[in-house]
Computed example of a mutant assay.
Amino acid sequence: MRLLAQLLSLLFRGTALMLGLVGAGMALVCLGGAFSDRLDAFTHAAPLWLAMAVGAVVLGGVCARGAERWVMVSLGGIGLLACTILMAPELWAAARFKPATVAQSDLKVVQFNVWHDNRSPEKSLAWILAQDADVVVIEEGAGESWPIVKALRANYPFASCGKGARCETWIFSRKKMIARGGATFEGPYLSAAWATLADAKGPFTVIGVHYTWPVPAGPQQAQGRKLARLASGFDRKSMILAGDFNSTPWSFTLKRQDETLGLRRWTRAMASWPAGRFSRIMAAPAPFLPIDHVYAGEQWRAVKVERGPAVGSDHRPIVVTFRRQ
């Protein structure tokens, strides 16, 4: 029995040391993302490094003694501090948001990557239609999710993609589209759609985008620059931007994008991926990465921001209700 207790103690202490070394090391590497896009790729996993740091503090504090305990707790503390630097501003912004009562005249926007391998497109479609949104922005509208697109075209009078065309990113609207298009100029491929909508308070433009993954470093940052050029052609004060950015808010890439766009990001620390069964062998009980985002210009104020359920896609949908000021 004593031998078993010693073996368990050794296991827990070894685990604490491993968690402390990896958590602190990777969290410090993430801070280098301020200068390197390659290092910035590690910042997206900040919740994992944070969990490791907490594990090192708890296990080290309980199972170790003397100098060994202080080493493990100190390593965990370093990881906690670095993760706090990365994540605290986003968490603080999320805590400060104060929802308001929704009015009939408000604009309801749904952002949803419906996933080309959607497990149950009929559930996704039923959920979208139940929202009765004014604007729906979807990504990966092909493959198994094509029936969703077909049904939305039948239920919404205006779509950003012409009849007969197969687009990956779509905007559907109940408001009349004065103009529409996509990212067509030279540069890195960017799945994007835009539409200028008629409104009693003046026309406004909605842009939908879908970024590539953050690894390898470089292509996602180039897509961000292309989006900035696209957005510069419209009135940003009345603009709404939504999409799957495949980028977390504690990454320096997204922080720089927030500054460049000059729009307010209303989705704060709202995890949207992964959802449900996101691969053939893996399922997620809850999302932990906020990678779907909704921005708006200064003429808009969000009165409600919420996350939808898992309905077949590997992403949770996002619903933002705006009031034009």
Rank of each mutant, 00 (worst) to 15 (best):
E139W: 02
L107T: 15
F97D: 00
G276F: 02
E186A: 15
N118W: 11
S247T: 13
R96P: 01
L261G: 05
R256D: 02
L19E: 08
D314M: 05
L7H: 12
S251W: 00
F288A: 11
R174Q: 13
V102A: 05
V71S: 11
K237A: 15
F12H: 08
A192C: 12
Q104G: 15
A93Q: 07
A228H: 01
S272G: 12
F158D: 07
R153A: 07
I240N: 13
G141F: 03
G233Q: 14
R119S: 15
Q325S: 10
L152S: 07
A142S: 11
F172V: 13
D117W: 13
A93R: 04
L241T: 10
R264M: 01
N155P: 10
V57M: 11
P309T: 07
A200C: 05
K108H: 12
S145C: 08
V209P: 12
C63A: 15
R256G: 02
G202V: 11
A231P: 05
V110W: 01
C63W: 14
A46P: 13
F288R: 07
R38V: 14
G243K: 09
A192Y: 03
Q223P: 13
F35P: 03
F42P: 11
D292M: 06
A193K: 14
V320P: 11
S251P: 04
T169Q: 07
R323S: 04
G208H: 02
A286E: 08
A154N: 09
V206F: 01
R268S: 00
A159F: 00
W273F: 15
N118R: 11
L91G: 03
M26Y: 04
R65D: 08
Y295F: 10
L86P: 06
L91C: 06
I207L: 14
F42N: 02
L75V: 12
L11Q: 06
G218P: 09
A154R: 12
F278M: 06
V71W: 10
G20K: 11
F278T: 06
D244W: 05
L7A: 15
A5R: 12
F252P: 03
S173G: 03
E298N: 13
A27R: 10
L107W: 09
L254W: 00
D244K: 13
H315K: 11
V137Q: 09
M52P: 02
A45C: 10
K176A: 09
D106P: 12
W213Q: 11
A100T: 06
